[in-house]
Write a protein that binds this DNA or RNA. Structure first.
Lengths: 178, 178
DNA sequence: GCGGATTACTTGTACCTGAAACTAACACCG
DNA sequence: CGGTGTTAGTTTCAGGTACAAGTAATCCGC
């Protein structure tokens, strides 16, 4: 009765295969930089944030991570010297994560590799209109899965971010600790 | 230099968000049946296989699972009575997994729920041509990620399966053990 | 301003996964 | 046959994640 049509099954099966293969493929690419795909996402989110700093809750929301997970991974990045924690002056409960200089460098170093991987694995096969269709399709699907567009921030650094979350980061010393 | 264009970044960011959200959303839906999304995939693969049986290696290849993972999950499904292991007569090393009656029922019960979830979360937003575009796009991307089409079997039960892998299952007692 | 409720994060616990090591069975070749 | 190498699967182990409990700080109603 609510059986899927053949073309629908084909599309879903392929999407399923994509979901299965792409994340691990990207992880494998990034592995040469010593970063996890998720760690890279964190660095990227911090890089695109207002002052290279973001509260952990905001960071978790943007990356769809649970807070425990984020806490541990940030600790790991802190141990590697790529990220630092800074207390928030306005709210004693809050902690914001910020990029260190080494963190910014690590991001800058791994970014082109990531872009290359994305180009090779995804974009090259599609033409310009393919990219557009991909953007439209994913937009449609995401409107169901992520109505508040929590994860839709990484494309433009400022506009949506400042509108969506008033207190993503709270002011503190503007210069990252050495 | 190899920076991504704006529209490319948008498409990739959305795809990334999709990759992040869809699997867990589907898992959440299926959780009511007591099945993992991966377990459901296994039941589906067995259901679509020639005689409801498949060698573990073939099953692992079709589902992109490592053999250790598959071994454990099959053990779990065996404990639940949904799947049984059967020795292969032709090759003493091989084991094939087969659906029990309870397993076939569990698949039949969870299948409509899965279809409904897929419809709600993915298909409904897209029109008929959206489905076609999705199928084409994922096909393009998968040609890079899965050139041998290991995962592209679940759409038609017999034709591609028999061609792709000669010995996916080896003959044994044709009736599942009670 | 003080006590309960809420928020932000951290730690403890259990589970799941992948890589590596291991066992068993076949295959080839002398 | 007997030995070497390969294939199929299981087991062991380390790492990562989610859920739940714990801690600290803020908010709010009186």
């Amino acid at each position: 009765m609510d059986e899927l049509r053949y073309d629908e099954r084909v599309a879903i099966a392929r999407l399923h295969a994509l979901l299965e293969l792409l994340p691990t493929a990207l992880d494998r690419e990034l592995a040469t930089t010593g970063l996890t795909s998720f760690e890279f996402t964190l660095l990227e989110a911090l890089h695109e944030a207002e002052a290279g700093r973001l509260r952990l809750t905001a960071l978790a929301s943007r990356t769809n991570a649970t807070l425990p997970r984020l806490s541990r991974v940030v600790t790991g990045l802190e141990r590697k010297g790529l990220v630092a924690r800074a207390a928030c002056e306005e709210d004693g409960r809050a902690t914001n994560a910020l990029l260190t200089l080494a963190g910014a460098k690590a991001y800058a170093d791994s970014h082109p590799l990531y872009n290359r991987a994305v180009r090779d694995m995804i974009l090259n096969g599609l033409g310009d209109d393919g990219v557009n269709r991909l953007a439209e399709l994913t937009y449609s699907i995401l409107s169901k899965l992520d109505p508040e567009r929590r994860l839709a921030v990484s494309t433009n650094g400022a506009s949506a971010a400042s509108a969506a979350s008033a207190a993503a980061a709270c002011a503190a010393d503007p210069v990252p600790a050495p």
